[in-house]
Design a protein around this nucleic acid. Structure first.
Length: 474
RNA sequence: GUCCCCUUCGUCUAGAGGCCUAGGACAUUACCCUUUCACGGUAGUAACACGGGUUCGAAUCCCGUAGGGGACGCCA
């Protein structure tokens, strides 16, 4: 039987980076097995499920390159994804079937009544669970003014066992589980019911999700059993924690996938980094997506939670920047440069950027840093304090002499410029750095830059002479 | 509080009873390369949570303890 997996985000306003990891593992497993990857938006919470928040999820998925297979499924009613909300009637129907076959029942307890029950349980130090007060009570005793909920008639004895592909065999005593609500008083389904019905209707064979769902799994398995449906294979992934070991949240700086794009990370780097959280393949670290598809399987997944390490992510990102096409990087850096420059790059400037990239790539870790490192090509920057110190009176005198030689160069290439500087340094018994550093200061305003002779060639003779003159006279 | 799960360098991890003097990667330290900064190269510091078993032999199996995470909603 072919594998069917799904990723079921709820539209909370952004795609969480932890959810992205779950999406990645599902997507990889589908690709690895030649199976199907479905997207289902869990939009039953009408407050949060705005068109914008759904669009954000879709954008995040597309940016990461996680293409799903049900974009044109008839079950979507014209949408590019399965909307849980649209199937609420089907969910309610299943709840009614369960009442009919005796695996669920109506409960007329009011919210206040249940709050009081839980408060009492808590005060006595007892586990907080529904006590089954309507489980066997006849409908004739139902109060007229309460709209009942439908609850699962869960088994009271025995145990529920799940053979998890990551965690192994996990067991819970049924006495620990109460009769959960399946259908609310207003007739809408709860998450527990909706998930099971949708997964069954969509033919999901493998449920790969965060282990925060572990206890939900036992309850969902009971629903499958009550309906006589096949239970899917489960794989619960350990959580991703923040650097401090607490649940990854806004507090840690970047909870949303879009934050990473805005900080200048590449989607392939995010994929590689996320893959290595809780999953491994021997000593392999830098793993292409193609390789990941070939290698990914459940046996590589670890059981313990992982902390998110921004420093290592940056390293992985640097690796993929090194691999990336220069034109692509130039286009990705353009918005950042526009932000700094207050204008768009001209076609000629874009060309300079592309030609500068081979020198820039090994020096940056993010696309944003590409913009920072290349800003001087397009704009004269103020002299940094450390650059100022390099421009001693002697250094300025050398630059004045060198400017004359640069004017006389037949070709203004990096090799020619370097030749001129080396010859001059030798004549004056100086180290190359003694003349190269002042040039760097003059051209970039900084004591740190990409190799200065290639930078000078890219800048062009007129601009170089202009910048040198500005500091020599300044 | 009850239940479920987890525990190897600071971090991500390799490790399926002898291959372990515990390996790799990031970070970190030193050196080399070098026009600066990077990249790259070489070397170094650094971990089996603790306590009991089982075994000729345990990071690996079992049991406790401690610590961490998650779940206990008419949220998803």
């Amino acid at each position: 039987m072919s594998v069917v997996v799904r990723f079921p985000p709820s539209p909370t306003g952004f795609l969480h980076i932890g959810s992205a990891r779950t999406a990645l593992f599902n997507w990889l497993y589908a690709k690895h097995t030649g199976g199907t990857f479905l997207l289902r938006v869990e939009d039953t919470d009408r407050e949060r499920s705005t068109p914008e928040s759904v669009a954000t999820i879709l954008e995040g998925m597309q940016w990461l390159g996680f293409d799903w297979d049900n974009t044109t499924d008839p079950k979507n009613n014209g949408k590019t994804y399965y909307s849980q909300f649209e199937h609420r009637e089907r969910h309610a129907e299943v709840a009614r079937q369960m009442v009919a076959n005796g695996t669920a029942y109506y409960c007329y307890a009011s919210t206040q009544e249940l709050d009081a029950m839980r408060a009492e349980q808590k005060a006595k130090g007892l586990p907080q669970r529904y006590d089954g007060r309507w489980r066997d009570r006849p409908a004739s005793e139902a109060p007229a003014d309460v709209k009942p909920v439908v609850r699962l008639k869960a088994p009271l004895t025995g145990e529920t066992v799940v053979d998890d592909k990551v965690m192994g065999r996990i067991t819970v005593q049924n006495s620990q589980l109460d009769d959960m609500v399946l259908l609310r008083g207003d007739g809408t389904p709860t998450y527990m019911l909706a998930v099971v019905v949708d997964d069954h209707d969509m033919g999901v064979t493998h449920v790969i999700r965060g282990d925060d769902h572990m206890t939900n799994t036992f309850r969902q398995v009971q629903i499958y059993r009550a309906m006589g449906w096949d239970v899917p294979v489960y794989a619960h992934l350990p959580m991703i924690l923040g650097p401090d070991g607490a649940k990854l949240s806004k507090r840690h700086g970047a909870p949303a996938v879009s934050d990473y794009r805005d900080k200048g990370y590449l989607p392939e780097a995010i994929r590689n980094y996320l893959l290595r959280l809780c999953w491994s393949h021997g000593d392999d670290e830098l793993i292409s997506t193609e390789q990941a598809v070939a290698w990914f399987d459940f046996d590589g997944i670890g059981k313990s939670p992982a902390r998110f390490d921004f420093v290592k992510l940056a390293h992985v990102n640097a690796h993929y920047i090194g691999l990336a096409d220069n034109e692509r990087l130039a286009d990705l850096a353009a918005p950042f440069l526009k932000e700094a420059l207050g204008r768009d790059l001209t076609a000629a400037e874009r060309d300079v950027l592309i030609r500068a990239l081979p020198d820039i790539k090994p020096r940056v870790q993010t696309v944003r840093e590409i913009a920072e490192a290349t800003l001087f090509y397009f704009h004269r920057l103020p002299l940094h304090e450390k650059a100022q110190k390099l421009l001693t009176p002697e250094a300025k005198a050398h630059l004045r002499d060198l400017a004359e030689r640069l004017k006389a160069l037949p070709d203004f290439t990096a090799e020619a410029i370097e030749g001129a500087f080396r010859a001059y340094a030798e004549e004056k018994a100086l180290k190359l750095g003694g003349v190269a550093q002042p040039l760097r200061a003059a051209l970039t305003g900084s004591n740190v830059s990409p190799p200065i002779f290639t930078a000078a060639a890219l800048l062009g003779r007129a601009e170089v002479l202009g910048r040198v003159q500005a500091v020599v006279e300044g």
